[in-house]
Design a protein around this nucleic acid. Structure first.
Lengths: 344, 344
DNA sequence: ATTAGCACTCTCCAGTTGAGAGTGCTAATC
DNA sequence: GATTAGCACTCTCAACTGGAGAGTGCTAAT
């Protein structure tokens, strides 16, 4: 369908457009990329590529611009070398400045994506490891006034989460400890998702066995686990405002809407964590299933704790993104986080 | 200096400009506000007001626009009535939807400002009660691996904060409990600020009395209290993008820079909490001491827990803000939070 | 299959023009 | 002495124009 020459021209066009957001014309291609062909021939090829949906013209007699399909082709062609120097600088910086942050995953993530967005000029995003696949380690319950309990949840990832839970009873700390140790023995080693589904089961049987201790435990535990996702971190909005792609207000509104709807981005990233791939993943524009995110691309990868993928890190930017450089960068960031988590 | 008539004209101009962001001319004033004066007379008055620094002209032969000083005069003239209906709707909504959130201050705040920004179309901000004036209630230490301790801090406001602290020793939970109870007896009832300064003192004596228990306690406590401020909540960025004041990209960049530098806004709000005023406070444009925030106004008020002012809530918007309506709204929001905190 | 040549289309920019809004000044009026 | 009518002047804004530039698609020649 596409012969060697077509592919080269297509990639040259995408490349050129990424470097410079002007529609690219046939003459420019022959000059800059030194194909031994005349502009007219390039024009024919471009016309074919347009028919096949890889390119489009903003208007007659403008050059061509890649479509999402065009970007996809380009990305799939990329092999992951390149940008050695710039990325080395990036790696050095995060290693030097963030090495010491081991004990607080949240800070590690937020600082990493801050630098990620500094270097890439795109929007850094990360999902902290609260995904359902994390393993329950233990829970502590602390009395807090007469009708509240503070739950502190530990997972194998070392992630700690606390939450104030409303309760309709007033038990002494001693009894709370009993409830906690019941929960700890019952759920040790399960993933959070498993616990959630077991709770749903037990809730239905609950009316039958009226053991108040257990029913209270279950209630507290359900509250403590109520949000199935980790926290999302987003950083670098003012970076993307500097890009030529966001020189018009409508586009800015679009992306800020997307950001405010964090829920969507969380879901997207969570899906990535569950897919069991090692490489950097790219979602381009309309490939995105989320309405508010069409028009933007996501480049992301997962990081691991031990052997389990527990969260993801990436950037969101315009579809006209420097995929090659960005992908390499995300790769570095994800490996860095994995490594840092290993070392502690 | 300003006679009655001058004041009325000035207020009419500000009012009109707030309703509609066009420079206001002399003819318009006579028509709309039915002063029994001709445009020429109004022109003379406007010219005087401009000399005194209340107004300025974007260019010759445009109408006039208020300066920050002009807004200040207007705001100081405002008595707090007005906008009964709209604000009743606002009060009803937050009361109805948020009444049940008592146990989690963070959620209460973030939901309140979300609605605040919906109704006002400005950026809602709030500072949670971690200000230094909050009173220490108790601290719990939980073992977390061999070199980490999780601290859970309770204040009188019921605010709970946890933090993972790196430690260079490996003590059993029993010893951590001893440390915790030492801290609890030592610091009960102090404000966090007091504790911080006492820690600094004791750190210097520390080398002399080599009691490891105490020195370890102090270290942990210092870490747990390391951030002197509460969390900041910001909501409604896409609301402000809809305002005509932000139709140009430069202005958007400006405000998004200000938002990203949360630190500044925290300081500003914290200062408000400490000033012991009951009313809604207004900071207009260049009155602001923060470079990045000139060009915007802040309308904010503090909320109380018991008799202490513990945090603040407000909005940030363009200097061309509907001060009257906004001030009434902030007043409602702050009272609502105070009341909700009381009831639990 | 490739290319040279040419007519055509579209954008972008700079310059121009006229309408509209508003001012400042002056001289007349109350 | 304060107010006002009248008028010349200034400035912006939107619409229009024309020419330059870039790029295309088609056709006929290589």
């Amino acid at each position: 369908m596409l012969d060697e020459r077509d592919r080269e021209v297509l990639c040259a066009i995408v490349q050129s457009y990424i470097n410079n957001p002007d529609p690219v014309g046939s003459r420019f291609i022959t000059k800059k990329y030194a194909f031994c062909l005349s502009p007219a021939t390039i024009r024919n090829i471009m016309s074919d590529l347009e028919d096949m949906g890889f390119l489009r013209q903003p208007h007659t007699s403008a050059g061509r611009v890649p479509t999402d399909k065009g970007y996809r082709f380009y990305v799939d062609c990329l092999s992951s070398h390149a940008h050695q120097y710039e990325n080395k600088v990036f790696l050095n910086e995060i290693t030097r400045e963030l090495k010491s942050i081991k004990n607080d995953v949240d800070i590690l993530l937020s600082e990493t994506i801050k630098r990620l967005s500094n270097f890439s000029h795109y929007l850094g995003v990360a999902l902290s490891p609260m995904a359902g696949s994390a393993a329950f380690n233990r829970i502590e319950l602390l009395k807090h006034g007469s009708s509240h309990v503070v739950t502190v949840l530990f997972t194998d990832e070392g992630l700690v989460k606390n939450k104030v839970v409303d309760v309709d009873f007033d038990l002494p700390q001693r009894d709370l400890n009993r409830i906690a140790s019941y929960l700890n023995s019952e759920f040790y080693g399960c993933t959070l998702n498993e616990i959630r589904s077991r709770i749903v089961e037990e809730m239905s049987e609950e009316k039958i066995l009226c053991d108040t201790l257990i029913s209270r435990s279950i209630k507290i535990c359900r509250e403590a686990l109520s949000s199935p996702y980790g926290d999302i971190f987003i950083s670098g909005f003012s970076e993307v405002l500097g890009l030529p792609d966001f020189s018009d207000v409508e586009k800015i509104k679009e992306i800020s809407k997307a950001i405010e709807d964090k829920h969507l981005i969380i879901k997207l990233l969570d899906k990535l964590s569950e897919s069991n791939k090692d490489e950097v993943q790219v979602i381009i524009g309309s490939e995105n299933s989320l309405a508010g995110m069409k028009g933007f691309s996501l480049v992301a990868a997962t990081y691991k704790e031990g052997s389990r993928r527990v969260g993801s890190v990436g950037v969101i930017g315009p579809t006209r993104m420097d995929y090659s450089k960005t992908m390499a960068m995300i790769d570095i960031a994800a490996r860095f986080i994995t490594k840092t988590l290993e070392e502690r």
